[in-house]
Simulated scan of single mutants.
Amino acid sequence: MDIGSCWKNNGQPCDGDVTTDVTRYSEMIINPSIEAWCKPDKLDSCPPYHTLPNGTLIHRSDRQNFPYDAYHIYCSPGNAEHLEEPYNLCDAYSNPQPQEILQIVPHPVWGDYGYPTRKGEGWIGDSRTWELDVGRLSQALYFYQDPGTKPVERRWPSIDLGTEIYVSGNEIAEWTVSDFDIIVPKEDKQLS
């Protein structure tokens, strides 16, 4: 699952200015051969914070509590002015304008949102139905914003499901999805 959006580092909506707009992606990688690059000794590949379902923030330097194995890689937007060191800037391989990418891998911390919790779940031979709370997870994931700015109201207009071959020497991928529904719960509206 790959969700994408765009907002400026100050929380304002994108307006087509490719110098200040930032395309942002969150991706779950289920290929069991992929290892997390985020490690206690490689903090530049980790987001600065992990958020628990109750809203508690865990800094990436907290070796006892930060779930390093839940994150494949995080890269910061190249136009961010207040990045916490160490950081890893997203390259222009797939998008020449500033972008921010957060890739997660199966781990118990994602179970509360319905996502795979162990390697191999959702992969070949595991054909169960998944009900993912994509919206709630996307609100919990770290994305850069300039200090002192109003938190952005995250909207994810792009949802992709499929395969991506990052660097390849002529590989072919086959991806099968038997059914895909997007369920948007109705908002409770109180009458005045």
Rank of each mutant, 00 (worst) to 15 (best):
K39W: 02
P116S: 09
L83P: 05
K8T: 11
T129V: 15
G162Q: 08
S33A: 14
L161P: 01
G122P: 10
S192V: 11
H72V: 14
V134Q: 06
P108W: 02
D133L: 06
W156S: 08
Q145R: 09
L83I: 08
R60D: 09
V18N: 12
E153H: 12
Y68D: 10
N95Y: 06
E174W: 06
P77G: 11
E84H: 02
L137D: 01
G148M: 13
V134H: 01
A140E: 10
Y144A: 04
N95I: 00
I165C: 05
R24S: 03
R136G: 06
Y71K: 05
A36W: 02
V22E: 09
D69V: 00
L57Y: 01
S127L: 13
L43I: 12
S45T: 05
I104T: 15
L89K: 04
L102P: 00
I29R: 04
D112H: 15
K39G: 00
E153D: 13
R63F: 03
H50T: 04
L83Y: 02
W156H: 09
P48V: 07
T117G: 04
N9D: 05
T56L: 05
L43W: 07
T129K: 13
S178E: 15
N79T: 12
T149M: 14
G55V: 03
W37L: 15
G122V: 10
S45R: 13
Y71S: 04
R155W: 02
D91R: 12
L191F: 08
T176L: 10
Y87M: 03
S26M: 04
V109E: 12
N54S: 10
I3A: 08
Q97N: 14
F180M: 12
W37I: 05
D146A: 07
V134L: 14
G114V: 10
K8Y: 00
H107N: 15
Y68Q: 11
Q64V: 07
Q145Y: 00
G11S: 13
G120W: 04
W156E: 10
Y68M: 10
L141W: 01
S178N: 14
C38A: 11
I172T: 15
P116M: 03
T163P: 00
R60Y: 08
A70T: 06
E164N: 10
R136K: 15
R24D: 06
D15P: 07
S61V: 09
P96G: 01
K8W: 00
N10G: 11
F66M: 05
N95E: 15
E81K: 15
I29D: 12
R154P: 02
E187Y: 03
E35M: 09
L191Y: 06
G125A: 01
P96L: 07
V134F: 00
H50R: 08
